[in-house]
Simulated assay, not measured.
Amino acid sequence: MKSLGALPRSVLILEAVGMILLALAWLSLNQYISLPAPFASQMAAVVMIFAGIFLMLPAAFALFWKLAQGIAPQLMQGDKTSSSHSDRTKRDDADH
């Protein structure tokens, strides 16, 4: 994968929203900003942290998948030339 622009747009949006949630939770917990009443509690910050991480997982999975395809394309394509064990033993049979 040459750049992050190769990721689907929806995955990039989810990644950005996850980062924003993590930043808001961090800023709220350190009292740099004050959020509205429902989002000002520590429980809401914990929920924002988990939601932010959850929203960032699709991008991590997509990056991992592209990396795995680039490193080992043979593992990702499956076995296209499958032959049974009996076919292989017939070809290598020395009893003529």
Rank of each mutant, 00 (worst) to 15 (best):
Q77T: 06
A59I: 09
S84R: 06
L35D: 06
M48R: 07
D93R: 02
A16L: 15
A6T: 12
W26K: 03
S10P: 07
F64E: 09
Q31T: 03
P8Q: 14
V17K: 01
K2G: 15
L63V: 12
P73W: 07
D95H: 07
F39T: 01
S3W: 11
W65E: 15
N30R: 05
A51N: 06
L7W: 04
P36M: 05
I20K: 00
T81Q: 14
A37F: 10
Q77M: 10
P38H: 10
S83T: 12
K90V: 05
I53E: 12
D92P: 00
W65P: 02
E15V: 02
V47K: 15
F39N: 00
S3I: 13
T81V: 10
M43D: 10
L67T: 11
L4W: 04
A44W: 07
V17L: 13
W26Q: 02
T89N: 04
I20C: 06
L24S: 02
M48H: 09
A37D: 13
F61K: 05
L75V: 08
V46H: 14
R91T: 13
V11E: 04
I33M: 03
S10G: 09
K66T: 04
G70V: 01
M76W: 08
W65K: 13
H85A: 08
I53V: 10
M19H: 05
P38F: 09
T81N: 14
K90M: 07
Q31D: 01
F54E: 13
L4N: 11
Q74G: 01
M76H: 06
S28N: 07
A68F: 11
Q31G: 01
S84F: 10
A60L: 13
S83A: 09
R9Q: 13
K2T: 15
R9T: 13
G78R: 04
A62D: 13
F64Y: 07
L29G: 01
S82E: 03
K80M: 09
T81G: 09
